[in-house]
Computed example of a mutant assay.
Amino acid sequence: MGSDGSRHVTALRRFAVVSVVGLCLSVLGVAVVAVVAESHATWEWYFRMEQAMSVLMPVTMAFLGLSLVSGFGVVYAADRR
């Protein structure tokens, strides 16, 4: 692989890292709201938890898909020694 190929691999690795970090942050966001809702134990906070889940679920699924695809891409593009 030339320098152009190594730039693509570096970009793919960065994309994979951003995807995984985004996945972790979106799951963490829902978890924090859920913990706060359980600590307050009111219908208002349970409703906020449901809202957070409904907003972040598509985002989480998108990050999950991107993480899987970019992870396979990184493995495929890895140097075979």
Rank of each mutant, 00 (worst) to 15 (best):
M1S: 10
D4T: 06
G5R: 07
R7I: 00
R7F: 02
R7T: 02
T10M: 00
T10Y: 00
R13C: 12
F15W: 13
A16E: 15
A16N: 15
V17F: 13
V17M: 13
V17H: 10
V18R: 15
S19Q: 13
V20Q: 12
V20C: 07
V20F: 12
V21T: 14
G22P: 14
G22F: 11
G22R: 12
G22T: 14
L23F: 15
L23P: 04
C24Y: 03
C24S: 05
L25D: 11
L25K: 06
V27S: 09
V27R: 09
L28W: 11
G29Q: 07
V30R: 01
V30C: 08
A31P: 00
A31R: 05
V32N: 08
V32G: 04
V32P: 01
V33E: 02
V33L: 02
A34M: 04
A34P: 00
V35E: 08
V35Y: 06
V36Q: 12
E38A: 15
S39C: 10
H40C: 10
H40Q: 15
A41F: 01
T42K: 09
T42Y: 12
W43F: 06
F47W: 05
F47L: 05
R48Y: 05
R48M: 02
M49Y: 01
M49V: 01
M49G: 00
E50M: 02
A52N: 03
S54F: 05
V55T: 06
L56G: 07
L56W: 01
M57D: 09
M57F: 03
P58R: 08
V59Q: 03
M61V: 15
M61L: 15
A62N: 07
G65P: 12
L66H: 10
L68N: 08
L68M: 12
S70D: 03
S70N: 02
F72A: 12
F72C: 12
G73C: 07
V75D: 15
Y76D: 07
A77W: 01
A77D: 03
A78I: 09
A78C: 11
A78G: 14
D79M: 09
D79G: 11
